[in-house]
Write a protein that binds this DNA or RNA. Structure first.
Lengths: 301, 301
DNA sequence: TTCAGCCATAAAAACTGTCTATCATTTTTA
DNA sequence: TAAAAATGATAGACAGTTTTTATGGCTGAA
């Protein structure tokens, strides 16, 4: 049996005439006759009672043809579902972001996303790099905004932007007298960091002098917001990524900041996805959309 | 697209492994890979994300495969409906009978029909020959028990039995003194007949002497039962077909009867159906069943 | 009776699906 | 780290199926 055979019998049932049915299927009449004859033989059932007056559909023929229509309709639905999925800017996309990016980046593109890709529905997930990578690998996630390049061979990434680090310190701190800041100006045990697992912790540590690295085990914040509040309350200074500076909180909260002048005081942000992920178009579109929404405080490659 | 292709994608979705899916479809792995690749190209959609770790079904793939399962299920249903319709002793059959046969013949085979062909459901229709023939031709009816051979080329018939005519007369009638009866013994204007349209009227007339034929225009019964009652009330004599004699009414109602000795005082009963009617098996089975239930008063060919 | 309409049949041609053999890549194992 | 195993993709030959054109036979109508 064959979907085409089902087309043929439905056409004959509709036209009650082999020749016209054949025309409607764009095949010759012998083709249609032959295929229907074969199908009848396979099923062991006569679908049509042929006579020169006209075609009569047998009782069993009626039954079978109505099921055939269901099958054809399903096949048709497959085609239209596939056709409407053609659009790379449609469908579901699950997007992961790390906690030091999500709250600052998402507002920069969500509304644009809605208007530019209304048929794309994005599910967000905020988690630390390791877990996002894992989710990418097992297919729970389609794409992720990460601050580390992919390590697995099966992953690849688009470079989104590079994000400078800023030094955040409380009002009245001696750094306030400086025009700009470098890590050299920071006291070793003055730097507050995130808890382990946050990649930004490692990135911040990597631009500290070696001596600093072992210190301050006791004070670790679980989020950037907490960290900032700690700084505001005079517990020390910290580094924040540029996008986190977008909030208007600095003056009111008694916080001051300098962009760091140190070379390498920045991190590269990637849009990571599986190499085999089929909807590269959607990923590309998302990357461009994110980049278009970025402020000038970060540098797009 | 093809039902086989749908089998393939469902198998891959089930096994998450091309090789094993190919095995389950009893084809080689390249065949399966190739067909799926082609289907994906046709649909313009990636159904599976292939990697060496395992197969991941894409979102659109999930959608399409679930529809594919519907189509496969419909195809399967076609096969099983056809298979269960293989049985010639199953299905619906519409059976017509003429009024001078129906009430006497149906009781002779209905119970046998139920037990011998329990999956066959017969719809009965009682009507005069012309209308039954018409219904046969336009497909309203599948078979008919008629007392005339088919006239249309597209119809054919099985000879069921030949049914002698009996002469029915009231008790006290002079015919009661005879051992047997012939039409020669009957007074011309004594014969009561059915209304026009009943073939039995014509059959009865045909064995009357020509002189009788123009008479008795005024008394015409619309049914055999009426005719018999008319005879019982002394209005005349009549002919009845043998099967109508089966009832136990003769003595009680003051009726007597002789089987006619005239040559040709009988009629041939046919089971008529369209030459092209596909379920000849059902018709044959019905014919045999009817014949098996007949009494000895009629002759099976 | 002839003619036109309709479905069935036959033989050749085109197409499609399948197989074997082989490759490239990835993962596992030694 | 290198060899082996596993997995899916590719290529070319082959077989089976579908399709087409040409033709036949039957039926109903003029």
């Amino acid at each position: 049996m064959n979907l085409r055979d089902l087309d043929y019998i439905c056409a004959v049932a509709d036209h009650k005439h082999f020749g016209r049915a054949a025309d409607s299927c764009h095949v010759s009449q012998p083709t249609l006759s032959g295929q229907i004859k074969k199908l009848e033989a396979q099923l062991g059932v006569t679908l049509f009672e042929r006579s020169h007056k006209g075609i009569r559909v047998t009782d069993i023929g009626e039954d079978i043809i109505s099921i055939a229509r269901e099958a054809r309709e399903a096949a048709q639905r497959i085609k239209s579902v596939a056709a409407s999925a053609q659009d790379p800017l449609a469908g579901n996309l699950s997007l992961g972001l790390i906690p030091t990016i999500a709250p600052y980046l998402i507002p920069l593109f969500v509304s644009q996303l809605q208007s530019a890709m209304p048929k794309m529905s994005v599910a967000y997930r905020e988690d630390i790099t390791d877990r996002l990578n894992e989710a990418l690998l097992n297919g729970e996630l389609d794409v992720a905004v990460l601050a580390t390049p992919p390590e697995e061979d099966s992953l690849t990434a688009i470079e989104l932007y590079s994000e400078p680090f800023w030094l955040l310190f409380p009002e009245g701190h001696e750094l306030g007298t400086f025009k700009n800041a470098s890590m050299k100006d920071v006291k070793e045990d003055d730097v507050l960091l995130l808890t382990e697992g946050h990649c930004f912790r490692d990135q911040a540590l990597s631009i500290c002098r070696p001596a600093q690295k072992a210190r301050r085990q006791s004070l670790r914040a679980t989020s950037l917001e907490t960290l900032i509040n700690l700084v505001a309350s005079g517990q020390g200074v910290t580094l924040v990524p540029a996008l986190a500076m977008r909030g208007g909180w600095s003056p009111e909260m008694g916080l001051m900041s300098h962009e760091l002048t140190d070379k390498g005081a920045e991190r590269q942000i990637y849009l990571t996805y599986r190499k085999r992920f089929p909807r590269v178009g959607a990923v590309q579109a998302l990357a461009t959309l994110i980049q278009d929404g970025l402020p000038e405080s970060v540098r797009v490659a």
